[in-house]
Amino acid sequence: MQGYLTAVGTVGGIYALLALGLNLQYGFTGLINFGVVAFYAVGAYTSALLALRGVPFVLDFAAAAVLAALFAWPLGVMCLRLRDDYLAIVTLAFAEILRTVIVSEEWLTNGTRGIPGIPRPFSGLGAAAGGFAYLALVLAAMLAGVSLTVRLVGSPFGRLIQAIRDDEDAVRSVGKSPARCKLVVFMIGAGLTGLAGALYAHYLTYISPDQFVPLLTFYVWIAVIMGGAGRVGGAIAGAALLTLFLEGSRFLRDVLPFVSEVQMASLRLAAIGLMLILFTLYRPQGLLGRVAR
């Protein structure tokens, strides 16, 4: 059981990091990024490919975050002046383009075969201790993400981005450039997402394009919305709740023998859909949030 809980903790921690990145973008700045999975994939592939070429882990993770942020740059420059919903569609499209590139450019990504045998830090410690150490690494990354968010939000810059979220025109009228601030936040959020991707790739030790589908983006959105957009704790709580729900439904199935595994899969997605509807309808501020949006 311990090994399983470690695994769930690791995956939950990675979700939390993803939720922190999105929360920074959407929760604090109002950017509708539907391309979370794209930056996640950039991080995962960057780190995996570098590690397999013998680059030390620290540099792999750093490169994953930096490259994911750099991928966000042109997209941000092009799209952050657009309407909110356009950004949503453009980022969704970007994620699909990127997935196609990963599938097609075999020379770099090994195409649909995926990349097996990605080294995992601490694997030398054995199964149990190594798993724990990796969980600690993920949680450390998560805490780093939290402290980054807290500092950023508390700074003058943080107050500026929240002002942009609430009233962009007012910010413009005092002579600040909202587009510039949005770009910075978009890139920082993408960097956190890329770091999460790297942690995921080294944890799973195998990545392939079919792991980077839009559904993951929506999971992260659900975490942020459930936890409460614009609250640091909200992202963590939302990710924890999501993981609990996804994993808990496995055990639920064990005690509900009259529900087949097929029906359970439907019920799982139905519950996610229903939660999205109910939260946006009745509790848009999320579980922890105060600000009505």
């Binding site: 059981m1 769930v8 392939s208 994993e247 055990f251 899969a265």
Partner: peptide, 23 residues
């Protein structure tokens, strides 16, 4: 026997396998 769904997706399958083996 215990039954699980891979969702034809490696990450879901990894957690399912972990659950089967550890839990």
């Amino acid at each position: 026997v215990y039954a699980e769904d891979t969702q034809t997706s490696p990450d879901a399958a990894v957690l399912a396998a972990r659950k089967l083996i550890d839990a």
